[in-house]
Design a protein around this nucleic acid. Structure first.
Lengths: 339, 339
DNA sequence: AATTGGCACTCAAGGTATTCGAGTGCTAAC
DNA sequence: GTTAGCACTCGAATACCTTGAGTGCCAATT
């Protein structure tokens, strides 16, 4: 176990390094924080911390900077959660008013989070494990193209244009739509595929080709709904912290564009009791994120499983405020979506 | 007018500077290009070019680099359009197969363009000046929320969830939908707003509140359709060329996120007979684009006005290949969308 | 009139040497 | 356990020098 004062020293080092970007020396520590001991004593503590790999020296004989492990201890044990400022609270409440549209709400959320933290923000679309089909609609776009719409009871709408290649009979389409709704309304999304097995038997033989095609596309739509999407905002904030991110920063932008890596990153973290999770530097097993930290929190939509939101920034970030912001935004969003 | 050989020298300077990123000296020019004159003669030509502000010296007594004006002359008079390689052609044809969905096609187009040019690519959604209403649909999402769908004959679909605040009667909704379709199908988008004037008179007095609300949202949907949207890909390519972009590169990322600036940038250029337009450095009047060049081309969708696509990169870019790629992709896309 | 060789000049880049000072580890004393 | 003292380290800053690619200009040549 690490002695009280040494821990205090670690906290001071993290704070100073975060604000100054300079390796922190013993003398500066004594001066700027109210330690009642001499610099030499602090040096002894620092030697201990270094033995524990909590801090490191960039070069022999210069101040110390926190290691990933040091940040970890700071986050787990030493960080006091800074309450949000009034300005921040009102920013959240002003931004996150109710919106008719899930896209709209999440879009505003992600921009809010980016602005609040000065980091790059990410919001994952809710997964819909327990969500149920509310209705299925099919709107003709041209003779052969149909806009297929799936509406769930989690207020989520998914649609896709399907090209059947040849003209679709309106009456057949209506029949299809009616039968599918009868079968599927109220069914959980997860069960749609199995419920549709052999369903083409309901149709006259000459119509089964079309029915199968239609059902295939519907299953795809359900899957699309379950597959994970992501909104991102504030990538420019990454660029502003390029110095802290090391060289592989254009790789980060690639990851942002591809999204799938970001999703992995967000979801491989185990959140604590509070729903909050932090992945620091090399803790993130993924390539190219050695100098980045992810702060995520789950959020709930009513009944359905939670999805996640969070920020991505350099390891040298302001953990306390970022964690506070992420948690606050996650809570507000949950409240908003549960109503 | 600039003498033949001097122009040749300018071309050589542009080419060398683009490939090496080093200021180009007279001796290197004679060696690497087959000039039949001595370095001193080249120096005289360079003095002329410098007088015309076509090239500049970063420091007294070092090689020359092209100015914006120099690039301009190069683009207008000196650049030979390099035909696309076989690999590039097949990449285009492989990528741009027909897709059911406009979103899908444009998404693939923008990624293709980014990959082809190694720049950041942009594709503007087609504007719909002459497009007509094909149909209007209204699908209930919850008691009070309606998914409003507008389908145009340009195969474009726009939808939005509208929250009416209180339960909407299904019969009323059906009536609304039927009447609107009767009135508006076949009408040009531009005329929708005027056609809807006083239309609430068609409804019983107690229903006019709802009718007005509904119509207001429909007009918004039409406007959203006309308002300009943009797809972007390959922002990481900007990061890779950060050295050439000067300091204000995080500002560029901001612009990318806001999009409106990019739209201005693309649309303030006058394209030549070929549909191609290039904005070089400070020619782009907008703040923060002093070191960037935009290459855009219009593309046509059948009947409707054209929209634009293009790439954004550092002024020091490979103009010939980028212009060729942009033009080729624009043509393929036009062909695809006109079918 | 255009071209060329010659030449003095400029200046960024790179190397070396020196200094400076913040910071360290260690030891002996408190 | 704490502290003062001290020798030591080493990056950063500064100054100085050298090098060499490149220039402009001029007088001679074609």
């Amino acid at each position: 176990m690490i002695p009280e004062r040494s821990a205090e020293v670690l906290r001071a080092i993290v704070q100073d390094y975060i604000s100054t970007r300079e390796p922190v020396g013993s003398k500066a520590l004594v001066e700027r924080h109210g330690f009642d001991v001499s610099a030499a004593t602090i040096r002894n503590d620092m030697a201990l911390l270094e033995e524990e790999q909590l801090i490191a020296q960039p070069h022999t004989s210069s101040g110390r900077i926190p290691t990933d492990k040091g940040y970890r201890l700071f986050v787990d044990k030493l960080a006091e959660v800074k309450p949000l400022s009034v300005a921040e609270r009102s920013a959240i409440e002003g931004f996150l008013t109710d919106g008719a549209d899930l896209d709209d709400v999440l879009g505003r959320t992600v921009r809010l989070l980016a602005q609040l933290t000065n980091q790059m923000a990410m919001v994952q679309y809710p997964t819909l494990g327990k969500a149920k089909v509310r209705s299925i609609e099919a709107v003709p776009v041209t003779d052969s193209k149909i806009l297929l719409i799936l509406i769930t009871d989690a207020n989520r709408i998914e649609q896709h244009v399907v090209d059947f290649g040849k003209p679709v009979d309106a009456i057949l389409l209506a029949e299809m739509r009616a039968k599918l709704n009868t079968l599927l309304v109220g069914a959980q999304l997860a069960s749609v595929a199995t419920k549709l097995a052999d369903f083409e038997q309901e149709f006259a033989p000459e119509r089964r080709r079309f029915a199968l095609d239609f059902m295939g596309n519907l299953v795809e739509l359900v899957d699309a709904n379950r597959s994970e999407k992501l909104l991102v905002a504030g990538a420019a904030n990454l660029a502003r912290r390029e110095n802290d991110l090391g060289s592989d920063f254009s790789g980060l932008l690639d990851a942002v564009e591809q999204q799938v890596v970001l999703l992995r990153l967000m979801n491989e973290l185990n959140s604590d009791a509070d729903g909050l999770a932090v992945g620091i530097g090399r803790e993130n097993s993924l390539e190219g994120f050695a100098n980045t930290t992810v702060v995520v929190s789950g959020y709930q939509t009513d009944g359905a499983e939670s999805a996640r939101l969070g920020v991505l920034g350099p390891t040298r970030m302001d953990y306390t405020t970022n964690m506070a912001s992420v948690r606050a935004v996650a809570r507000y969003l949950s409240k908003l979506l549960e109503s």
